[in-house]
Design a protein around this nucleic acid. Structure first.
Lengths: 211, 211
DNA sequence: TAAGGTTTGCGACTATGGGGCGAAAACTGT
DNA sequence: ACAGTTTTCGCCCCATAGTCGCAAACCTTA
């Protein structure tokens, strides 16, 4: 699990690593603006997910001018590795350098949001390649959640929720041998909330036929 | 469940009902700004909760000028009924008049957020009076969630999560008779997430001793 | 004081969904 | 063939939520 950072060329925080971004142009949507600024760094077509996080307005967040910032969370699948310009690089999210502005808190918010949504939505499609084995998916979840994940459980849960489906194919076994894993894919490439964790549910019978 | 609206005095949308708000002053925090603008309408000390929702940036959201808006969700307990100026009033959230700008979508987002957080946090303290019976609480939850809620269940769930505690006292029975209900209160008046609904939990034994 | 109506409290049972574990299956390489 | 590795799957357990029904506690009226 990595974060894309670039090294600031100008003051303030010159030389510090920071999240990619830039100023909002007149009559632009925030999302368009984000995509535009990101496009200068990476191939934006790879962005599998983009969601607004929060708007920061502490008057002291920038040492020079008074400015607001709206933070977004963007994700790309684990199997693509876009070209990067020299001033940008991926950093493991568990070991980030000191960041400019309040970007640490933004990263934190993003991780938290991702962690939560992995639990009750089908987000995960945004992290995974088109096809994958359960073990590969488990590793992605473990990296994002920050703790071990049981492959058995992951498979059962995501299948029951009808988030995953089997492709029928299976991956050739790795160099160390072992049984080859079946390949799965996410059913839909858009965010769907797996309700059913609304805890004070509406009255009535069950939702999902066990099939 | 009501929403505070005020009738716009100026164009655009003159005469239309809209959510309270106003422009952000230089070097202000968004939250301070919200509180300030709200203070012109109601007694802000009553605000039991305030949370940022989202920032809207559609260039066409205002017919005249290009402007951004950051929406907040504010809540007050059900037992207080602050004085309002003539141009403001409470409207039942299930039957709102046409709203100015994109305020419908903001209301929707707010309701959704409230609904979700009622399920997995102790928010609810923001809606309820200091002390209340389970039935009263049930009615609040039912109004906010939009569906019936079982009092039995509500009590058990919130007690197990240690969100509620009994005061020992009980309310005098109503005019129609009936057994008087015990009074409860929320343990803490700040937002606490009742984790344990993170669905792919870290490995290990249970969290809450059943006591 | 007894009866009837109303509301709350509570225990028992059920349903659902997640977690853990171990054996069997399916590979590779020696 | 056999050992080592990884995946798959069935089985059982437990935690938590949902449902139901009866008993308890209170009022009013007879």
């Amino acid at each position: 699990m990595q974060t894309l950072l670039w090294q600031r060329a100008r003051e303030p925080f010159k030389g510090r690593w920071s999240l990619p971004g830039g100023y909002l142009a007149q009559h632009d949507t925030l999302e368009e603006s984000i995509r535009r600024h990101l496009a200068e760094k990476v191939d934006v077509r790879e962005l599998s997910y983009l969601e607004q996080l929060e708007t920061l307005s502490d008057p002291k967040r920038s040492p020079q001018e008074w400015q607001l910032a709206t933070a977004y969370l963007g994700l790309i699948p684990s199997d693509i590795d876009p070209e990067l310009p020299g001033d940008s690089d991926w950093h493991p999210v568990d070991d980030l350098p000191p960041l400019a502005f309040d970007h640490d808190s933004i990263v934190l918010a993003g991780r938290e949001r991702l962690r939560a949504k992995l639990s009750y939505t089908n987000l995960g499609f945004a992290l995974a390649p088109d096809e994958f084995t359960i073990s590969e998916l488990r590793d992605l979840y473990a990296a994002a959640l920050g703790h071990d994940v049981s492959a058995t459980n992951l498979q059962r849960v995501l299948l029951r929720r009808e988030v995953l489906e089997a492709t029928g194919r299976q991956r050739a076994s790795g160099p160390t041998g072992g049984r080859p894993g079946s390949l799965f894919r996410f059913r839909t490439p858009e965010l769907e909330i797996t309700d059913q964790f609304a805890v004070l549910r509406p009255p009535g019978p069950a939702r999902l036929p066990v099939a």
